[in-house]
Amino acid sequence: MASIAASRIAALNRLRCNIFQTSYNPESIRTGAKYLRARLKGPSLINYYPQEINMSTFIKGFPDEGLVDLDEEQRLQDIIDKKKRGKGTPRKARTPQESRRNKKRR
Rank of each mutant, 00 (worst) to 15 (best):
V68R: 13
A38M: 12
L40N: 09
D64V: 03
I53H: 06
Q74A: 15
R8G: 00
R85H: 04
P96Y: 10
E65T: 10
D78E: 15
S23G: 04
I9S: 06
R16F: 06
M1D: 08
S99Y: 03
E98R: 03
G86I: 01
K82A: 14
G88F: 04
S99H: 12
R101V: 12
R85N: 05
T22I: 11
S44A: 15
Q21D: 14
A38Q: 10
I53N: 06
M55N: 09
C17N: 14
L15T: 09
D64C: 02
G86P: 00
Q97Y: 05
S44Q: 05
N47R: 08
N18T: 10
P63V: 02
R106A: 12
Y35H: 05
L76H: 07
R16N: 07
P63N: 05
K41F: 01
E73Q: 14
L15I: 06
R85E: 13
Y48C: 02
A33L: 15
L40Y: 01
S3A: 11
L70N: 12
T95E: 03
E72P: 00
P90V: 02
D78W: 03
L67Y: 11
D81P: 00
M1I: 03
A33D: 15
R14V: 00
R14G: 04
T89K: 15
K34C: 03
I59M: 02
R91C: 01
K103A: 15
D64E: 15
E98Q: 10
P50E: 12
V68N: 05
E52G: 04
R8N: 08
Y49K: 14
L76C: 03
I53K: 10
K103N: 07
Q74V: 10
F62S: 11
I29A: 13
D69Q: 02
E52I: 11
R37V: 04
G61F: 04
C17S: 15
E27V: 02
R16T: 07
K103M: 13
E52T: 14
F62R: 12
P50D: 14
G61C: 03
E73F: 09
A11T: 04
P63W: 11
S23R: 11
Q97A: 13
Q74E: 14
K84T: 04
L15Y: 07
G61L: 04
C17H: 05
K83D: 12
D81Y: 04
I46W: 02
G86F: 01
N47Y: 03
I29T: 12
T31D: 11
Q51R: 12
D69H: 05
Q74T: 08
G66L: 06
R106F: 13
I79T: 09
I79W: 05
I4Q: 07
A93L: 02
Y35N: 08
E73L: 09
M55Q: 09
T22R: 13
L12F: 15
E98L: 03
K104N: 09
N54A: 04
K60G: 01
Q77I: 03
D69K: 01
R14M: 07
K83G: 00
L36K: 08
A5M: 04
E52F: 09
G88T: 02
L36I: 06
